[in-house]
Simulated scan of single mutants.
Amino acid sequence: MTTVGFLLLPGVHLLDLAGPAQVFSTAADLGLGYAVRYSAAREEVVTAQGLALRVSTDALAPSPDGLVLVPGWRAGGRVPYRVLAEGQAAALAAHRAAGGTVASVCSGAFALGEAGLLDGRRCTTHHGLQDLLARRFPRARVVPDVLYVPDGGVVTSAGIASGIDLALHLVTVRHGPAAAAAVAREMVVYARRNGDEPQAGVMLRHRGHLVDAVHRVQDAIDARFRETLPLAELAARARVSERTLTRLFTAATGLTPLRYQQGLRLEHAEHLIGAGETAEAAARAVGFRDARMLRRLRARPA
């Protein structure tokens, strides 16, 4: 039985906690042998979303097979130099020294840094806190714009929902990709994302503009990215000429409509490959005739 202990700090984000907790709880339901525990400095922890949680104040015991995970809390770009209560930093360090795994979601990385666990290690956090983490812990090697980073028994992840990806990664390490895929299916999660994927996917990275016509075309491509979408059809949806659509789309997103669609296909194919599909099967599933175009896109500089 593997114990997964969540160390909760005041103002913890619900999804930072609930996402990984659901992964390990579901894994336990599937017979993978997990026991989930919760600990805090006080019996009541009020979350960032206002929900009060009642938890144990017993310290999480060091274990060579266990995992201690620190979810993030509402930081707003301002993280105190001391976020841990008395004894918590030593407990985290002792758990790692005993051979156990220590992990964090979002601003939880600052707790690991306070415990000295980021020194000399690669790590990450929410994109809005990466620069602060690097300044606060100069011996840490902060990796920007990735979902999660494992390094020597210490695993850090980006913000909020990336904790699910981190937890599925840890299940994969212990039990293999098939077990993680079973957990993901039970949770109705599309697929386990790879750690080096950017924190914002293709849809989010290219949606920061204010051009309604381009948003309408993006909606169509997002919904039907596997299909062949003639430029004339997309221009009709935007109610502009093909030439005008290409100009507007490129100015708003930095990509042509075709490159945007290819980016979506590539992103979805990478998800499938990460879940165990072959490149050929993934390519066909996202709309390519075969894997040749997929290989070219994977090799193309970002």
Rank of each mutant, 00 (worst) to 15 (best):
G76T: 10
L32Q: 13
A28K: 08
G77V: 09
G31K: 09
V79Q: 10
G108V: 02
S63W: 05
E86M: 04
P138Q: 06
V68R: 07
L69H: 09
Y34L: 03
V46F: 10
L84K: 05
S56A: 14
A48F: 02
A94C: 09
L132H: 10
T125H: 06
T124G: 10
C123P: 04
A94D: 12
Q130T: 13
R54P: 05
L112V: 00
A61T: 09
R121K: 12
V68D: 02
A115I: 00
G72K: 06
E44R: 15
Y34H: 06
Q49A: 08
Y34K: 05
S25H: 12
G116R: 00
L118W: 01
L67F: 11
R54L: 13
G108T: 07
D58W: 01
L51R: 13
W73C: 05
A91Q: 12
V68F: 01
L60E: 11
A98Q: 07
R135K: 15
S107E: 04
F110L: 00
G108A: 04
G100F: 01
A111V: 01
A111E: 01
L112Y: 00
A61L: 09
G33W: 05
A61F: 04
R96H: 14
A40Q: 11
C106K: 03
E43W: 07
R139Y: 00
S25I: 08
V46K: 14
T125K: 03
R121P: 00
H126C: 08
Q88R: 11
